[in-house]
Write a protein that binds this DNA or RNA. Structure first.
Length: 372
DNA sequence: ATGTAC
């Protein structure tokens, strides 16, 4: 007689790393879907909408909801040459990344007129949630030779850009969901064509924003030294490898984001098939947004969230978002990196320490282009 | 995380 066998679930975290049971439950729900082969959960695993965040999920069929709406979301690192680094001065010079660049803005040169699917709406904007554009400084270097190959050394300023495909990915998922719900894509090639365009759009968006910030800070735009998507699907070994909040970890360099008040870790990733060829994408939430808001209001002042323990500044005119994204709402990045290292998935190369993190424009009268 | 509805 035939029976449905659930896919395997492997959690890459040490027993001392707390993982919300609801997120592990979601992994098992995903594992029970038709055609699923394997679910690899990263140490930053936390519950998502329908599917867990921080997982690499392999199946014989393509499930768009396992990638989610922010197709092509990723984190890129751009070197930036600055003469003087004074966070207060630089924070005031950040462009308004909630609105696209003006038509004549020189930052557009960074994408050379490439607008995938002709979707101009939101291009050059950062979005909300956990997205950010950060001026950081290379901190501890664990692997100088490796860092050197990337052109990075301790003290170097860099831009870290975490953003995705904005409304485009959302539109692509919705078009599928309206007809097929959480079911598989009946025409995987058609979905993949749109998905791949959104992945390209996300990369261009990160590049465009880095160019905007570079220009605004008086520097030349640069090519990214690291740029990996953590929401995408690829065909690998004849199966669909969905990554949601999990970065490609097959011999690549990945920036694993910390929080707006702790370092991030640039790692050399070398994850195998059991880990879905993936590594964690960040510290991972340990509190829901609602809990972070409620508990954060009791625990923190706005001032201490805008000036962090590492001395960085957070540009965020949205008070609620500031609490939702408080460092204490996330797990300790060192624990996540420790788990990746202990399981042989990655080797730390260097940290980046925040100087200025841009979340959303400050409120009140704002300095406008061409005005003092 | 998102655009949109409330």
């Amino acid at each position: 007689m035939s029976q449905h066998l659930s896919a395997t679930v492997t959690v890459f975290a040490s027993p001392s790393s707390w993982i919300e049971s609801a997120a592990v439950d979601q992994c098992h729900q995903v594992a029970a879907l038709d055609g699923m082969l394997h679910v690899a959960a990263m140490p930053d695993l936390h519950p998502g909408k329908g599917a867990p965040i921080g997982a690499a999920m392999t199946s014989a069929v393509l499930y768009p909801f396992l990638v989610g709406s922010d197709i092509g979301c990723g984190i890129a690192v751009f070197p930036i040459r600055l003469k003087r680094v004074v966070p207060e001065r630089l924070a005031a010079r950040f462009p308004d990344l909630d609105v696209p660049p003006e038509p004549g803005d020189p930052a557009w040169d960074a994408i050379g007129g490439d607008v995938p699917l002709g979707h101009l709406d939101g291009l050059g904007t950062v979005g909300r949630g956990n997205h950010f554009v950060e001026l950081a400084r290379v901190g501890t270097v664990f692997e100088p030779a490796h860092a050197g190959r990337l052109g990075l050394a301790a003290g170097d300023p860099v831009l870290v850009v975490h953003s995705g495909s904005r409304g485009l990915g959302e539109r692509i998922l919705r078009a599928h969901t309206e007809v097929h719900g959480a079911g598989p894509a009946p025409d995987p090639a058609a979905y993949l064509a749109r998905h791949d365009a959104a992945v390209r759009w996300g990369r261009l968006n990160r590049r465009l924003m880095a160019a905007r910030v570079a220009h605004a800070l008086g520097a030349e735009p640069t090519e990214p030294v690291v740029d990996e998507c953590h929401n995408l699907v690829e065909i690998r070994d004849g199966a669909y490898l969905h990554r949601k909040g999990a970065a490609p970890g097959d011999g690549r360099d990945v920036l694993v984001a910390g929080t707006r008040g702790t370092p991030s870790y640039l790692v050399a990733a070398h994850a195998g098939a059991d880990a879905g060829h993936s590594v964690a994408h960040g510290a991972g939430r340990k509190m829901s947004r609602a809990d972070a808001l409620r508990r954060g209001k009791a625990k923190h002042t706005v001032e201490e969230l805008r000036r962090t323990p590492v001395g960085s500044l957070v540009v965020c005119g949205d008070r609620q978002l500031l609490f939702e994204e408080a460092p204490t709402a996330y797990k300790r990045i060192e624990q996540v990196i420790g788990d990746l290292t202990a399981h042989g998935l990655a080797t730390p190369v260097a940290t980046t320490v925040p100087l200025v993190t841009y979340k959303t424009a400050d409120q009140g009268p704002r300095r406008r282009r061409g005005r003092p």
